[in-house]
Design a protein around this nucleic acid. Structure first.
Lengths: 228, 228
DNA sequence: AAGTGGTCTAGACCACTAC
DNA sequence: TAGTGGTCTAGACCACTTA
């Protein structure tokens, strides 16, 4: 019948979809399922845990496992380094370091990083190109306190790539938004001021403090795809 | 304190971050780690599998487990029903069914659904409100072939909510983009034509065919947050 | 050909919590 | 307090893939 926990997961999912156990109902305990399917309980556990992680089912000790009433769909987004992102589309990648300078941290990025406005920071402006055309305009703030003393030449190795290979990160968050292109952004992305840009802001934190805040602006028409 | 495989995972992660095994390097085989930590191999397997799922490590049979050279960060987005999304912000939710009619499927949605343009479809326009103010403007196409014969009153129960509770879905995808508000969208969202909207398009498929295609437009300033 | 990860088993102990 | 899920163990077999 089944040759592994994933088959069992699929079978249980099918029975849930078929309303054999309607939303909110209890499904049999692991031991009973193990008996019914003729497998070990650990195998059932893996299958049901996978369903729980997918949001199909909710588990609580002693209370058992219930079919989720309003299933929360979970989408996963893979965030490769931008070079990989572009190359993955079969396009040639290039980047251009527009500006690099030390500057005091403005209020906005400071808030996102959890730092005080006015502390020294490294500010980088980078343009990412796909097939020679603007792919993303990046404004990045780096927290020098969390970086190694000797920095590379960001004109050669993009900050993006250097960071993931050098600085341990622990947590972070990602914010999607739509904003009108500023004059500078429009110029960099070869579009018109006010044009709708997909803006992705990312904050990254390490064990001992915030590392970097990035704001990526993508030109009109850019899309980010996730799978459910 | 010690909760088993997750502590082992954290410890291995720390050693990877500390460059004990630099990017691209092989980490010890499961059996050796099991010996070194004094646990069963299955426990090591769970820990390392978790690291692999997080993109920290790449596993291949016979080749062993290597520290990822360019770690692909994975972010997860929880997509609740819109009512929950709004209520989760502590705001009151309401929705207004603007239009509902049967119409032939235009080319765009048809392509996204994998259906032929011109087949009959159900078209719904809905406005979602938070605290009485526009939260999202929804344009939805439903594939009647995949729906139960008797439909509810979408003015009462939003299509969103009815679908997740009624029609089994299997897979789908999610696309983020930024687009200028059309005149209709601007009017619905109480903003100006051309204003940058965060657009989220979702396609949902069942076992035997595509179910629905939704286009959600959020007013300027709207943000979607994910955690890494 | 051999070593690796992927998975299963049968049994066990524990933490949690609804009853 | 009893039943549930969470986890661990020691051993085993297998598929895969690289050397």
């Amino acid at each position: 019948m089944s040759r592994g926990w994933d088959d069992l997961r699929a079978d249980l999912l099918a029975r849930i979809r078929a309303r054999e156990w309607p939303p909110g109902a209890l499904i049999p305990a692991e031991e009973q399922l193990a008996l019914a399917y003729g497998v070990a309980r650990a195998t059932v556990n893996r299958a049901v845990q996978a369903l729980a992680e997918a949001g199909v089912v909710e588990r609580r000790k002693r209370a058992g496992t219930r079919v989720a009433t309003l299933p929360v769909r979970k989408a996963r987004l893979d965030i490769p380094v931008i070079r990989r992102e572009v190359e993955g589309r079969g396009q040639t990648y290039a980047h251009r370091l527009l500006t690099q300078r030390r500057e005091v941290l403005p209020a906005g990025p400071a808030a996102r990083l959890g730092l005080a406005p006015g502390v020294p920071a490294l500010r980088l402006e980078t343009l990412h190109l796909a097939e020679g055309r603007p792919y993303a305009y990046e404004l990045r703030w780096l927290n020098p306190a969390q970086l190694p003393p000797d920095l590379p030449d960001f004109a050669v190795l993009s900050a993006n790539e250097w960071l993931v290979a050098t600085v341990p990160f622990v947590s972070g968050d990602l914010v999607f938004g739509a904003e009108p292109a500023s004059r500078a952004e429009a110029a960099a992305l070869d579009t018109d001021p006010g044009a709708p840009l997909l803006v992705i802001e990312r904050t990254t934190r390490g064990l001992s403090g915030p590392i970097t805040f990035v704001r990526l602006c993508h030109p009109p028409g850019h899309r980010v795809t996730m799978h459910l």
